[in-house]
Amino acid sequence: MMLDRVPRMIQEAGALDRVGTLAARHAPGGAVLLVADPGLKASGITDRAIASLVGAGLRPVVFDAFKSDPTTASADAAAALARESGAGLVVALGGGSALDLGKAVACAAPGTLSCDAYALCANPLPAKPLPKICVPTTSGTGSETTRVSVLSLADGSKVWLWGDEMKADEVILDPTVTVGLPAHLTAATGIDAFVHAMEAATNVNATAANNVYAHAAIGLVTRHLLRAVEHPADLTARAGLQLAAALAGVAIDNAGTAIGHNIGHALASLRPIHHGRAVGVAVLATLAWNAAEDPDGRFAAVAAAMGETGGAAALAHAYERLLRASGVKVSLVGEGFDGITPAALAAKMAAPENAPMRRSNARTVTDDDLMVFAERVLTQA
């Protein structure tokens, strides 16, 4: 049993203002590429990061010309800017999209290939990536602690860039930067962290050592999600969710995900949908089926981590209560998916890029199961 390295993490209110000091250790006196979510400019968060970097004697160059679910073309543009500016470090600031993009840029910038060439490990990543610091402003994806970046191709398909080179060197967890996150995004990202941890603890790759991270994340989300949704300025709740996301990232880095993420990525390749919501509704449609077979108690252990005493049989109901109480909208009806048939969704779920998540599921997923799940996801209310 082996666990891979966890990036160095700092968590405290106001920790963003230390990014310059940390960055100067890796690129003293040089240029730094700041990959920042474009929505953070208005809140002053981007300017806080810039001020800290300038104060440490660094030259920040900002790249924020990207949208949610960033494309490999955006990563190529940012990598070109990193080369042109002579950046010796990448700081990724934002939600999962910004973190995934920044990590990919740090890996691609020292090389000559387009990011398309690294998709699904078609080519090895350059051996010496730029150092990278990840500063999450949401609490869900866990990208700050994983060795994976998820990018979109021109046709909307999501692909993985994977390798130890992708891992952050430093992670800054500052709960103050998540306070402005709207309630519906707090809920969706928190559910994303929960699903990461739950799938890592229950799929075929689960291990006792990795479950320490996964079960801790599950408990943190269960305790803090509703408080953060209802009282957004509560820094204790915000910090709890932030740590949950980072620990869940460690868990999926070691064990991966399962059918919930298979469906979530398939949905997003067909229509725009927030990732946390997508995996949240996917797990709602599949968890009772998954937990119905629990020979070694892995689903019962997840229920226990939530504080439930009814074993695996209680898990699906406990999850549904949390999902619905958080305010995540379950129904996809009228959300742009009305023209999507179960067969079309099932075909995307069976696509090669989604096959690893299907194979990792604890219970074998047949083609007939894919059709059943697709219909449930598209019609549940």
Results as ranks from 00 to 15, higher is better:
residue 304 A to G: 14
residue 256 G to C: 12
residue 232 P to D: 08
residue 203 N to D: 10
residue 65 A to W: 00
residue 38 P to L: 07
residue 209 A to F: 15
residue 176 T to D: 15
residue 76 D to S: 02
residue 218 I to Y: 10
residue 206 A to S: 14
residue 192 D to W: 06
residue 295 P to D: 11
residue 180 G to W: 05
residue 66 F to S: 03
residue 134 C to W: 07
residue 231 H to N: 15
residue 102 G to Y: 05
residue 156 G to Y: 06
residue 290 N to C: 13
residue 266 A to V: 05
residue 381 A to D: 10
residue 59 R to H: 14
residue 37 D to T: 05
residue 13 A to H: 07
residue 307 G to P: 03
residue 189 T to K: 00
residue 192 D to L: 04
residue 371 M to E: 12
residue 56 A to F: 03
residue 276 G to D: 00
residue 104 A to T: 04
residue 227 R to M: 08
residue 310 G to D: 15
residue 297 G to A: 13
residue 373 F to Y: 00
residue 313 A to G: 09
residue 95 G to E: 13
residue 262 N to L: 05
residue 44 G to E: 03
residue 246 A to D: 12
residue 201 A to G: 08
residue 163 G to R: 09
residue 268 A to Q: 14
residue 109 A to Y: 02
residue 275 H to R: 02
residue 219 G to F: 00
residue 141 T to F: 09
residue 182 P to D: 05
residue 91 V to Q: 13
residue 327 G to V: 06
residue 260 G to A: 12
residue 221 V to N: 02
residue 260 G to C: 09
residue 255 A to Q: 15
residue 143 S to G: 11
residue 86 G to A: 13
residue 139 S to D: 14
residue 341 T to K: 04
residue 117 A to H: 11
residue 128 K to N: 15
residue 349 M to D: 09
residue 70 P to M: 02
residue 187 A to R: 06
residue 255 A to E: 14
residue 285 A to D: 02
residue 94 G to V: 14
residue 364 T to M: 12
residue 269 S to Y: 05
residue 160 W to Q: 13
residue 278 A to T: 03
residue 9 M to K: 08
residue 144 E to R: 05
residue 243 L to I: 13
residue 298 R to T: 14
residue 116 D to I: 03
residue 109 A to Q: 01
residue 331 S to V: 01
residue 36 A to E: 03
residue 305 A to R: 06
residue 55 G to Q: 05
residue 268 A to P: 00
residue 306 M to K: 07
residue 52 S to T: 04
residue 173 L to H: 04
residue 16 L to S: 04
residue 174 D to A: 12
residue 376 R to H: 03
residue 307 G to T: 06
residue 163 G to D: 06
residue 1 M to S: 15
residue 234 D to T: 14
residue 116 D to K: 09
residue 202 T to W: 11
residue 371 M to S: 10
residue 93 L to M: 10
residue 52 S to E: 02
residue 46 T to M: 06
residue 20 G to W: 08
residue 94 G to L: 12
residue 161 L to M: 15
residue 310 G to Q: 11
residue 264 G to F: 01
residue 114 S to G: 11
residue 333 V to N: 04
residue 198 M to V: 15
residue 152 S to C: 11
residue 23 A to D: 07
residue 55 G to P: 01
residue 328 V to L: 11
residue 341 T to R: 08
residue 360 S to P: 00
residue 127 A to G: 06
residue 29 G to M: 07
residue 179 V to T: 15
residue 361 N to Y: 01
residue 319 Y to C: 04
residue 63 F to L: 00
residue 94 G to H: 10
residue 322 L to Y: 05
residue 232 P to T: 13
residue 102 G to D: 04
residue 102 G to Q: 01
residue 219 G to N: 01
residue 147 R to E: 08
residue 135 V to W: 07
residue 91 V to D: 13
residue 124 P to K: 11
residue 296 D to P: 12
residue 265 H to V: 01
residue 210 N to S: 13
residue 351 A to N: 03
residue 232 P to N: 12
residue 113 L to G: 02
residue 25 R to N: 14
residue 355 A to C: 00
residue 82 A to E: 04
residue 137 T to N: 14
residue 82 A to F: 02
residue 122 A to T: 15
residue 137 T to C: 15
residue 89 L to P: 11
residue 219 G to T: 01
residue 82 A to M: 10
residue 344 A to S: 13
